[in-house]
């Protein structure tokens, strides 16, 4: 069919940020499906908990310290993350580089502390259903921490190369920061379920 031109899109921009872009929506899509995975895992935890007269089944609740340290680190990391997204939107390369290095370090820190969280659960995954579901929840979130850390580290390296000088990379940085909020946000209900729910009763 013969086209008849009625609209000129040449003046439109070639790059943008946030909900105007495809990647932002793709990130939202993956957040929804991963968030659903977290919700179902928490649902499984609550389901198994209801079946037992005491929870944890034979041991005291997990040690609070490592999980709380991870929570504090994650909450603090939101501040530089906010600024990183802001600097990316301003195409400020120098600050973006600093921000990315900082966020890489703030990604490594909770992974290190996380290694102390597993023993703090006080039992192995193969002891009983309590051990299984707590390791599962913690493992699921750790996978997210590590994958996002990998993503941030690669992006950091990229921004120090010639490929960084590209508006699209700033948009990528902004989306990466956006995803970090998700990693932090999903941790909060897991932290509550793992550490406080057994104490509440």
């Amino acid at each position: 069919m013969k086209p008849r031109v009625v609209l000129d899109v040449a003046p439109l921009p070639e790059n943008s940020f946030g909900s105007r872009t495809l990647t932002w929506w793709g990130t939202i899509g993956f957040m929804c499906l991963e968030g659903m995975g977290f919700a179902l895992a928490i649902g499984a935890y609550l389901y198994l908990r209801v079946l037992q007269p005491s929870w944890p089944m034979n041991i005291p609740p997990p040690d609070l310290l490592p999980g709380t340290i991870v929570t504090v680190i994650l909450l603090i990391s939101v501040i530089p993350n906010y600024f990183l997204e802001h600097w990316a939107r301003a195409y400020d390369m120098a600050k973006v580089r600093i921000g990315l290095v900082l966020m890489t370090l703030l990604g490594i820190a909770p992974v290190i502390v996380r290694t102390f969280e597993f023993p703090a659960l006080r039992e192995r995954w193969d002891t009983d259903a309590y051990g299984s579901i707590t390791w599962f929840l913690l493992g699921l979130h750790t996978t997210h921490l590590i994958t996002d850390l990998g993503d941030t580290a690669v992006l950091t390296v990229l921004m120090f190369t010639r490929h960084g000088e590209n508006p699209r990379r700033f948009s990528d940085t902004s989306d990466n920061a956006f995803y970090w909020y998700f990693v932090v946000l999903t941790w909060l209900p897991i932290y509550f379920v793992l550490y406080w729910l057994p104490r509440i009763g």
Partner: peptide, 13 residues
């Protein structure tokens, strides 16, 4: 790895 999500003898269902 011997988790017990579905093992009713050890709290699974």
């Amino acid at each position: 790895v011997n988790t017990h999500f579905f093992d009713s003898s050890l709290g699974g269902d």
